[in-house]
């Protein structure tokens, strides 16, 4: 559940970001520009993914705790 939900969220974000940047850009390339750009566009996504992961883990822990066990 945890992995699937994160992967779905990720694929949507991944395709969105890829669609923003066309492959045929031919401008002068500074080796660091891509890294800066990735941080600007992905840091929010990463924060979201990590929060989602933490939330799913928390919910899982709650349901796995003895209070929620049947019998």
């Amino acid at each position: 559940m945890n992995t699937i939900s994160i992967n779905v969220a990720f694929i949507v974000a991944f395709l969105t970001v890829l669609s923003i940047f066309p492959c045929d850009a031919k401008a002068y390339i500074d080796p660091g520009t891509g890294s800066l750009m990735l941080q600007y566009v992905s840091s929010g996504i990463l924060l979201g993914l990590l929060s989602l992961k933490a939330t799913v883990s928390h919910i899982r822990r709650v349901f796995q705790s003895s209070n929620f066990r049947i019998g």
């Binding site: 492959c23 401008a27 390339i29 500074d30 520009t33 891509g34 890294s35 800066l36 750009m37």
Partner: peptide, 10 residues
């Protein structure tokens, strides 16, 4: 992104 990011876009 390393190979497709012009400085202006950044």
């Amino acid at each position: 992104l390393q190979s497709s990011t012009p400085e202006q876009k950044v």
